[in-house]
């Protein structure tokens, strides 16, 4: 059985307790943070197990690579502490269940992964993807299943992810470019955290887009717009790739406005909060986030995750800010849209 590479001693000796001190939803000082994380690591009860809203951010805040959120998730599951209503968890587990309906393009050593996001089947076209397409992979059989950490359910990940890895192994791919941010997080961060061997090199699509845009530099026409970026929860599993947002914007002439809820301080789209905790938390987070976008004069809101776009895209548009996915923005910059 796969077990989390967490070291309780790292927490005990932690000089900052950043994981909880920086948390946007808990009000915790350094000593409490360390005490609670040690308690959790030892399998004891902690209010954190009750109050954490599953934003994933502590995975980024912890500078010691000690996987605080994965730990919280495991311990919640062990203790039967539910984050979401059972029916919601069940629904999501059902959605991700392999059905034998996966779709493969002409898979080569290098392939694009669409996870289980059907949008990408339509979106991944044009010059940006011409060097890889039609080598693509889509379906539940290749879906990372990481979303279940929102639902305090690590066991389903431990059950399914090795099968997904096996499925990739059978394809003999050497390099997989993930268009689903969370899938990248799964193979670059979560799988190693559990000692699962990843048989290919995972590539984040931001990095891929950045490289392609650099190659296609001559085609770029600066967009000259003011934009904000909606950072998804899963991006906390790959913080090293976050910098590509700024770098891509520089390349395509987009003014990424400075705002309160960005980078470390980014706010969740609220989709999971609504399902798990109801109206008030979701509404509060979404309102603050969108007020902030609007207050900073954004013309465009760039999405990384299609699920975030589904959750607040319409509301963002009602505020006069155009919701757009990163892929579309980049295609716009090279005159394809």
């Amino acid at each position: 059985m796969y077990s989390l590479k967490h070291d309780v001693d790292l927490c005990r000796t932690c000089p900052t307790g950043d994981c909880l001190v920086k948390c946007q939803y808990l009000d915790v000082d350094k000593d409490t943070a360390v005490t609670e994380m040690v308690k959790i690591g030892r399998g004891e009860d902690s209010f954190v197990l009750q109050d954490c809203v599953t934003c994933y951010a502590c995975e980024e805040y912890c500078q010691r690579g000690n996987y605080p959120f994965y730990l919280i998730t495991e311990k919640r599951e062990e203790k039967g502490i539910l984050t979401s209503p059972r029916a919601i968890t069940r629904q999501w587990i059902n959605i991700g269940e392999p059905q034998g309906k996966f779709r493969l393009g002409e898979v080569k050593e290098k392939a694009l992964s669409f996870g289980f996001m059907p949008e990408f089947l339509k979106w991944a076209k044009g010059r940006l993807f011409e060097d890889v397409m039609p080598s693509f992979i889509f379906g539940q059989e290749f879906f990372c299943n990481v979303v279940y950490i929102h639902f305090a359910n690590t066991s389903i990940i431990k059950e399914r992810l090795p099968m997904v890895l096996d499925n990739f192994r059978k394809l003999r791919v050497k390099e997989v470019i993930f268009l689903h941010d969370e899938c990248y997080g799964a193979f670059a961060h979560l799988a190693p955290a559990y000692g699962m061997e990843v048989p290919f090199k995972p590539v984040h699509y931001f990095e891929y887009l950045y490289n392609r845009l650099t190659e296609l530099k001559d085609l770029i026409r600066p967009l000259n717009i003011r934009a904000v970026y909606q950072r998804p929860c899963s991006s906390r599993l790959s913080p090293d790739k976050h910098r590509f947002v700024g770098e891509i914007m520089d390349l395509i002439g987009v003014d990424l406005v400075e705002r309160e809820y960005q980078d470390h301080n980014a706010l969740c789209c609220g989709g999971i909060y609504a399902m798990s905790f109801g109206y008030d938390l979701a509404h509060d987070v979404q309102k603050r986030n969108m007020d902030d976008m609007e207050g900073h004069g954004a013309q465009v809101c760039i999405f990384n995750c299609p699920a975030c776009m589904g959750s607040i895209g319409t509301q963002v548009a009602k505020r006069g800010i155009r919701p757009i996915h990163m892929i579309h923005l980049c295609r716009m910059a090279i005159g394809e849209i």
Binding site: S84, P85, Q91, G271, M275, F277, G278, G310, G313
Partner: peptide, 16 residues
Amino acid sequence: DRFIKSKDGGFMGLPP
């Protein structure tokens, strides 16, 4: 709300 709190039910995220 009380059913959400007791984890007996929740609003599903409806994709647009």
